[in-house]
Design a protein around this nucleic acid. Structure first.
Lengths: 202, 202
DNA sequence: CTTATATTTTACCGACTGGTCAACTAAGAT
DNA sequence: ATCTTAGTTGACCAGTCGGTAAAATATAAG
């Protein structure tokens, strides 16, 4: 049951860093193995393909994002607006951190992967789509809480959450292009103004 | 002076389609040459490297975007709101068109390239940054026009234009991930609600 | 100890990568 | 007719790609 060695995890860590800081196409399994200190044969013992490794990396990234970003922002005992502001702040801190450590603003790992791979690998695209929808859903939950408490005027919470999420993704992409995480801080507040009206009642 | 052959342009066209529908890392110069019906030696007669070819493709994409999207949306004799709506509509039509033609929603060519290459190639990153800023600028012009005519309440037009642009980029990325251009239509209207207040007067 | 299983090593595969090169052709200018 | 120049060709380079396979080693159970 218990894994005796940490080889698989080392591969996962190495792949996560390399894929995030560069791209799928520019990182080979050889390099992933070198960084992990593992032979290529061992790689294919734990992962049947580069594609499967990538799926595992995305899943792990999702868990990390929940730990580092979402769970630190979405505290249901906070007012909805505070939760949304905390989300922006934590995203900013995350991007600023990588900028300080490696000199580069890396943007969203899911958005990056989707840009590159959605047209090339349908399995990866679907996995990304699922993960993004989960994140949208947690945003929606915050909005609904805010509407319920009267803090936020009634709106189409599904569409508004999706629009806010799109804004965040675009913000991270622009921050990456400018290589400047401060953009998130300067423009992030605009997310709070985004709103899509409720669909006309039947 | 005048180019005697269209080889260079054929390479540009082929590269534009391939790079847009796939990615930098997944498209080789061999394939670009094959699609263009050109020998590899000829490629390196016209372009010193894959990087330079990519820069030329980006510039061409920018011209096409101005023709197909911006010039059809930003008509200064229209009300600002109508111009913004036209922008969303033209982006939607563009994405819908590629979806119908090749079955895939490709998103923004600049955003895609930036996601993949900004951390790998500083020259490409800076070119992309410049092009994106030009697009932001034309959005800003529309906003300022709207503010001047009283159609739009005074705001920080620079920041608001940037935020709107981020939203558009995120929208295209999400549409690509879902492989569904309708997302642009459904959520696009939220762009009109985005706003960043004027910085406090001195 | 024996056996079964999990892990690791190493050499290897064919295909492909971006890029180079020298030879060649075509066309226009003098 | 000759010279120059732009364009073209196809072979070639060293290196890398994702992935395979067999043998070697380690581990744990019976």
């Amino acid at each position: 049951m218990n894994t005796v060695t940490d080889t698989r995890q080392r591969l996962l860590n190495s792949a996560r860093e390399l894929l995030y800081s560069r791209s799928y196409g520019n990182v080979g399994v050889k390099e992933i193995c070198d960084v992990a200190g593992v032979q290529k044969g061992s790689f294919y013992h734990f992962f049947p393909s580069k594609q499967e490794l990538t799926l595992a990396v995305l899943d792990e990234f999702f868990i990390i994002s929940k730990q580092e970003i979402f769970s630190r922002s979405f505290r249901s005992d906070w007012p909805a607006m505070q939760q949304l502001n905390a989300l922006l702040e934590n995203i900013y801190l995350f991007q600023k951190n990588t900028k300080e450590q490696i000199g580069k603003t890396l943007g969203c790992p899911f958005g990056n992967m989707s840009s590159e791979m959605s047209t090339q690998d349908e399995v990866i695209r679907q996995r990304l789509n699922g993960l993004l929808q989960q994140m949208e859903m947690s945003l929606r939950t915050v909005l609904e809480q805010g509407v319920k408490t009267g803090e936020i005027a009634p709106c189409d919470t599904v569409a508004t959450a999706a629009a806010m999420f799109a804004f965040i993704e675009g913000l991270m992409l622009l921050a990456k292009t400018r290589n400047d995480p401060e953009l998130i801080r300067e423009l992030g507040i605009a997310m709070l103004t985004i709103r899509i009206e409720e669909p006309a009642a039947t």
